[in-house]
Design a protein around this nucleic acid. Sequence first.
DNA 1: ATTGAAAATGAAATCGGTTTCATTTCAACC
DNA 2: GGTTGAAATGAAACCGATTTCATTTTCAAT
Lengths: 328, 328
Amino acid sequence: MTMKELAKLAGVSPAAVSRYLNGGSLSAEKQEVIRRAIEKTGYQPDLAAQMLRTRTTDLVGIIVPKLDSESVSRLTAGAAEELSQEGYLCQIAVTQNDPERELSYLSLCQNRSLAGAILMSTTADARHESFLKKLSIPVVVVGQRMKNVSCIYHDDFGAARELTRLILARGRTRLAMISATEQDPAAGLARQAGVRAAMEEAGLDPGALPVEISSFDIAGGAAAMERLLRRAPGLDGVLCATDRMAFGAMETLRSAGLVPGRDVSIAGLGDSWAGRHVVPHLTTAHLYYKTSGRAAARLLMEKMRIRKQDDPVRQTMLSYSICPRDSV
Amino acid sequence: MTMKELAKLAGVSPAAVSRYLNGGSLSAEKQEVIRRAIEKTGYQPDLAAQMLRTRTTDLVGIIVPKLDSESVSRLTAGAAEELSQEGYLCQIAVTQNDPERELSYLSLCQNRSLAGAILMSTTADARHESFLKKLSIPVVVVGQRMKNVSCIYHDDFGAARELTRLILARGRTRLAMISATEQDPAAGLARQAGVRAAMEEAGLDPGALPVEISSFDIAGGAAAMERLLRRAPGLDGVLCATDRMAFGAMETLRSAGLVPGRDVSIAGLGDSWAGRHVVPHLTTAHLYYKTSGRAAARLLMEKMRIRKQDDPVRQTMLSYSICPRDSV
DNA sequence: ATTGAAAATGAAATCGGTTTCATTTCAACC
DNA sequence: GGTTGAAATGAAACCGATTTCATTTTCAAT
C-alpha cells in the first residue's frame, strides 16, 4: 500500500495525504476522508522513501564493546528507555573491544545518516578524538573523557581512591591491584591513579604497588590474582578494577587458603548486583551506568534537536557511591 | 557525494558505477577508473536510496522484554555475534514485558522492511500465533514454543523436573515453588509442570504444591519467599523459576534464620554466573541462552536467504544441563 | 460588489540509488 | 564478408515519500 494508492482510494492527491500526515493546511472534509482511508487500509508510510526524501531518521546507533556484561546492559537499558520515550529506535553494534571497529561503526552510522550515536568507548586516544570531531552526526561518548567531544563519564579516579582509603583504614599496608588494560584511560589508568593517590596520602610508596592486568571477566580476575599471589605473597589488600575481576580474585584467594575480608581485603568497582549475594559481601562503588545511559541519551537528543549552529561540547562527570560491605 | 557526481568525476554513467558496485558486466578500464574515483572521494552509496529501490536491508530486528537481564544479554550477544558475521546489523526494541508492544514492534519491523526479526517472547497466546503467521517478514521466536511458527526454545519442563528430582532425592518432601507468571508458557507453566511431574513420580500429591508468583528479579523472589514461609511454614525445598528469584529467596530464608542448603533445599534455573559465587553455591540448570541466540540468528538468516517458496516452519528444542551444587 | 490576503490544492520535481531496455561494440564463426 | 550472439553501455524509468510552485478557493475587509 503506497501513498499514491491510498490517495486514489480516498479520492485526493498524494500531496494531500502527505499534508495530512505531516501537518499542512488541509480542509476538514479531506482530513476526514483520509483518516478513514488510513484506518481502513492500515496504511503506513514507507520508511526508506521518507528517509531518502527528508534525509532524517529516528534511528540512533549505540556502539558497545560487548553485550553480555552488566555495566553495558545497564547502560544500554537506560539509553534505550530514554530514547524510546521520544520515539527513537536503537541500532546496536558490538565491537568486541576492538577500537578499530568503534571507528568503522561510527562511520557506518554517519553513512546511513542515523540521527546520532552513543559510543561506549574502551579507549580515548588522539585518533578517536580527531575522528569524532570530523563526524557530521552528533555523538555522545560515555565512559571515557575526551577533549572537544561531548561525553558522560564516571569519577573513576575518585571511586578507586575512596575504596583504597577504605582498605587502608582497615589497617592494610601491602596493597596490590588488578587493573584493566592501560589502553583504557577510564577503567585502566584512572582507577590505577586513584589507588596510587590514596597510597600516597597514607604515606605509602605508590611506585611499589604490584599491578596485574586482567580482561573484563571472572576468569581474568582469577588468573591475575594467581599472578599477584606469586609476585607479592604477603599482600593483604587488593583493589580490582571491576566487580567481576573481584569475584574471580576471591575465588583464587579461597583456593589458596586465604579468607577474603579476613586475611585479604578486596574491593571492586561497578556495584554488580551479585556483590551483595556473594560471601563475603563485596565492597564496591556504584557507578550509575543506567543513569549515564539515560544522560547520554538525553544529551544526544538535545544535540539532535539543535543541529543549527555547531552545538557546544558538553561534558558531565557522574559521581559514585561507595558500598561498604564485608570484603574489606 | 552522490553516485551521479562520482560518475561525472570518473567520466562514466551512473549506471556503470552501479554495475561496478553490484557486479554487472563492465570493461576493465571503466572498472579501474571507477575504483580510483571511489578511492579518491571515499564515496559510499546512500542506504536510504538503496533501500527504497531494492526493498531490502541488512537490518534485523531483535525484540526483547528487557535489556538488563542476564538471559537476555546472553541471548542478544549470541545473536548479534552470529548476525554481524554475515554483515547484518541489529536493531533492538525493548517491550518492558508488554505483549502488546511485542506485536507493535513486530509490525514496525515489517513496515520498515527489515530483513527479519528475532522475537524473545514472554507469552505465546493465540493472538501472537496468528499475528506471526500473517507477518510478511521472516521471524524466529526464541524462548517460547508456538504452533506453526519457527522457534528455538528450551526444555523448561525437563530442566525443572530434573532439578526437582534432585531436591526430592535429598529427602525433601514439603516442596514449594516460586514461579513466573502463568501468562508465560515457558518460564511459567512449563517449569511448574516439571516440578509437579517430579512430585508425581515420587508419589507426592502435585496438587498440594504451594506456588507463589514472582517478577523476574531478586526483589520479587524475596517477596515471594516471604509469602511462602507464611503459607507453608514447614517447607524444606523450593524450586525457583529463575536464578535471580532464587537469590532473593535465599536472602529471605537467611533473614528468617534458615540456612539455604541445610534447612531448605533451593534451586534456580538459568545458570547465572553469580550462582557459583554465592554461598551456598546455587544448584541450577544451564539453559544455553547464548546458543539459542546463535541458533535463532542462523535459522533466521537461512529463512532470509530462501524467501522463495513459503519457507518451512522449523522448531528446535535445546536441551539443558544440570549444575548440581550446594544449595540443594 | 470588489479587493486582497490567506488557505487549499494538485502537478511535478526531487531525493540517490538500481534496473530495464534499446543500442552499440566486438569477437567468433561459417 | 556477412551473420550471430554475447558483452558493454547509457538514457530513462522507477522505488515511495516530501516539497515547491503555480493556481484556485475562500473569506473577511473595504
